[in-house]
Design a protein around this nucleic acid. Sequence first.
DNA 1: ATGAAAGCGCTAACAT
DNA 2: ATGTTAGCGCTTTCAT
Lengths: 342, 342
Amino acid sequence: MRKDDYNKRKRLGMKVTKPTIKNIARAAGVSTATVSRALAYKNNLKPATAKRIRQIAQEMGYHKNVAASQLASNMTNTIAVIINYTQTDFWIGILNGILHRARELNHQVITFYAGDNDSRRLTQTVNEALEHQANGILMISGKMEQEQVNILSTAHMPYRLISIYNPEHRYVSSNNVEIGEQATNYLIKRGHRRIGLVGIDHYLTGQQRLFGYQRAMTEAGLPINPQWIHYGDYSYQDGKKLFSAIQDGSVTAVVAGSDMIGAGLIKAATQSGWRLPEQLSIISIDGSDICELTTPELTTVSQDFYQMGLTSVDNLLQDQPATFIPTTLIERDSVQTLPTEK
Amino acid sequence: MRKDDYNKRKRLGMKVTKPTIKNIARAAGVSTATVSRALAYKNNLKPATAKRIRQIAQEMGYHKNVAASQLASNMTNTIAVIINYTQTDFWIGILNGILHRARELNHQVITFYAGDNDSRRLTQTVNEALEHQANGILMISGKMEQEQVNILSTAHMPYRLISIYNPEHRYVSSNNVEIGEQATNYLIKRGHRRIGLVGIDHYLTGQQRLFGYQRAMTEAGLPINPQWIHYGDYSYQDGKKLFSAIQDGSVTAVVAGSDMIGAGLIKAATQSGWRLPEQLSIISIDGSDICELTTPELTTVSQDFYQMGLTSVDNLLQDQPATFIPTTLIERDSVQTLPTEK
DNA sequence: ATGAAAGCGCTAACAT
DNA sequence: ATGTTAGCGCTTTCAT
């Protein structure tokens, strides 16, 4: 019963018994301690008493007051998740996994939305999370500046970056360097020599994928033309836009920074009358479920975001070191094998 | 600082000052009340004092204990959101909207995952939400049985069903009857007479869309063949599967229960060598962002899920009556206009 | 097996 | 403008 409701009925002279352990205790003729024990299913009290108390609690419509409980016990069993706005919705799968595992481990999840990579806002959000005395914080959030790090460390709050591989922090993520390398190598093995990298961002994730791309090319003894690298925000829109950047035919294949980029490229290319994959082979990074369904021809280096969510919770609560989630190469029809030159 | 951390340092004989208003008060030489006021930015205290106190709090790494605060003030400013597993991820947009508006209105959002439409689990989840003394509960959750309703009403907890139009409850949703009617009418106006309805569910949402479909057909004086109605779970997979059910050419057009169903139908039809929309016109219901991007040729009756999230919060907090979110018809290339017969 | 009582950290009346 | 104080509802020692 809410307070206003309670007060209203009280004003009207109605007899009201606010469902608290105190009132349950009175009704049952026992002490509050006994009620507390009964409701927590402690085993050091007579089963009959316990059952009777629970019965009464039920009848009174009792629900534990978590605030009071947490305050008294100094335990919250809560995981705070901070989410930033992103163009893609990869975080859904992660959140799903987090919610699932947290529930298994008897933890609450409290979700905070930090908006659009605004640093002030992120600071505020971190502070909010801290106020909840959570067991830890999971950040699905690209940016993380010194300011927020300082707050977290002075508060002695464990945290993990999810899906963001940043060696300066603890993270649960795919290995973006390897992803870039893996995707590029796949194209190289199929005979491609002029390979583009399209739609990566300017931050850590993008730079790591770029590094992997460069490593693969270099190790294969292939030259890299800076004109083959194109930046974007991982969105479908940018995928469509960026097609113009590779329309000159300078590359025979591209690594798309995300499924959405890949889908956009395919769309724009098809609209321009290109035949795929004959005129352009595409491999994409990510492999979110939705795109897997709607652009099923796309070869991808796929991340299991749900698994990432599960692992995040374990990693945080068990204080494990930084962890990579393995990726899977899913072959489909968007890459053509070229005849090996010379 | 967490308790174990605190205790450890204490054990080691380190001097520790747990950051509480009490300790801040001592450090600042004022009372806890003054500290509380300063930190809450109340205006009835000397700016200089307030500033000094906040300074000290900052230095001590203080973060309000929400549990204590909520307990003392008897206010939580929290909205509980209950999410069920669904085949489609339409709820992302809704959650996004909820998170956004909640933050604007200075409310926390606590997210509960109720799993896969398991009634016991849903009951448990509702109870958990209740324990947080939230201001209200938003349920993005198809099933809602008498058991859960009873719990909610005895707890006097305001709640809303989101995206589920159920006249027995308060809801924020699109009008599924109208959606079905609107989609069907669109096809009728374009000269179609044998119209299928594919991929709806057996629950309220599906039945309402079916009702709208029937109303449109009947008002147009068109017969309805039960063979034209096919059930599914709104997924892409089911869309592909259900193509076989209409492959006999008995209908010239279909209303697809969701974008995903529509996308699946298109895929399967194309794979079978059909030319679309000449051989089959498709209009879909939903219009989630992702599909809009990846299956852009699909004509849809589109719902604005983000708006639904925004409205949900307002509706709940301002105790407004049940509300429909308007839908938009988005015309694209998936419907063919037939020559009017006779 | 149960009770008594001391808080948890904070807020908000009331007092000064 | 600031201090005093009585709780909020619960958990948890310590008694019995």
